[in-house]
Design a protein around this nucleic acid. Structure first.
Lengths: 198, 198
DNA sequence: CCAATAATATACCAATTGGTATATTTTAAA
DNA sequence: TTTAAAATATACCAATTGGTATATTATTGG
């Protein structure tokens, strides 16, 4: 059984995470947080050392939910190459899903923290590396399974896919137009077909 | 001859633009601005209505410089397809150049203004559309000149290029690693060769 | 060189910022 | 049910926020 405090901490994070994600670090005030949670400063500062620790925890909270969701989606197939198609499939609906999170945490916090909040930025970097490692592993498994050409540099392609996806997320949000997301995913599917397949 | 006030206005913009671009709107305070310029609030508010107008003017100032630089680079060839290669060529060195601007204004202000500052976001949208129109025009000229396949949808490809470039800018800045920029530009060159060429 | 005006500096405003010390309430084990 | 401890609320802090009214200084055309 969870203690009351653990539940409160959880509640604060799930309430505050989308706010930080939407507004950014500086534009989110402690009074935004007390207002949204209905709690007082005592409760917030009792559970988190300061604003920065809260922002980092909130980022981790959002990323954890996102990663779990992706991982679950990738379970729909065991085939490495099909898993790659499942990634583009996941991002086809990412605009709607990520809106619930307050936007894409990697993009938003990545840009927001740049030259602003070093510890926060470090956490974003770690997440990006983790994602790319996972995609690279899928590609490597595909090569071993004979599904993907041995010519392919797994990490390079993982980074290419990640770069294209982040570009599509940025354009989709900024222009408020899902065309970018959908078209980029079509482009990625074509890449998998034409360049990656053995 | 420019009046003293016009020179001051110019000076404020060139001093303040990179600060807004780096920090974002909320994280840039009026005292940051007075400190950086060495001017007082009287001078700032005498030249700009308020913080928002200053931020918008600063964004336009940066974009103007950037667009001029790109336009000049594209003058190096008259051939549409060579102009496309010149675009990727320009962005190969974009990390170093854009650092002087305080980062990529489209990416930084685009993300920062999302759900935060509607007038600022509108200005970012207009810039993105303008850029895409220009690229689409180059592609259309290439089709007319017989350099580019008639199968190509100019605007779709302009958006794809823009999306990939923005993704590369984001990854390069967030990871502080130019690999993303360089590799994406190689990828774009390959696309031009393999998909666009007539 | 002078006067009208434009430009900038100064001093101030209420509101809000992140954070803390302390008081109060709630929790949970005995 | 009592009680020690944990969790939350309250009241406060100095510093900073964006912005303004007014005083002072520069500028520039005649």
């Amino acid at each position: 059984m969870q203690t009351k405090a653990e539940l409160t901490k959880q509640f604060i994070l799930e309430t505050v995470a989308p706010i930080f994600n939407q507004n950014g670090y500086a534009a989110t005030s402690m009074s935004d947080i007390t207002q949204a949670t209905g709690l007082t400063k005592g409760a917030i500062y009792g559970n988190f050392k300061n604003k920065e620790e809260l922002a980092i925890s909130a980022f981790k909270f959002t990323v954890k939910a996102l990663m779990k969701r992706i991982a679950r989606h990738l379970e729909l197939s065991d085939s490495p190459i099909q898993k790659l198609f499942l990634i583009s499939d996941f991002y086809r609906n990412y605009y709607d899903y990520s809106k619930q999170l307050g936007g894409c945490p990697v993009l938003n916090i990545g840009v927001d923290a740049n030259n602003q909040n070093t510890p926060l930025l470090e956490n974003v970097k770690i997440v990006i590396e983790k994602i790319q490692d996972q995609v690279a592993t899928i590609i490597e498994n595909g090569i071993e399974a004979g599904e993907i050409s041995t010519e392919i540099n797994a990490m390079q392609y993982a980074k290419r896919l990640d770069t294209m996806i982040q570009g599509a997320v940025f354009m989709t949000y900024t222009m408020d137009d899902e065309f970018y997301m959908k078209d980029t995913m079509n482009q990625i599917d074509q890449m998998i077909h034409n360049e990656l397949k053995a």
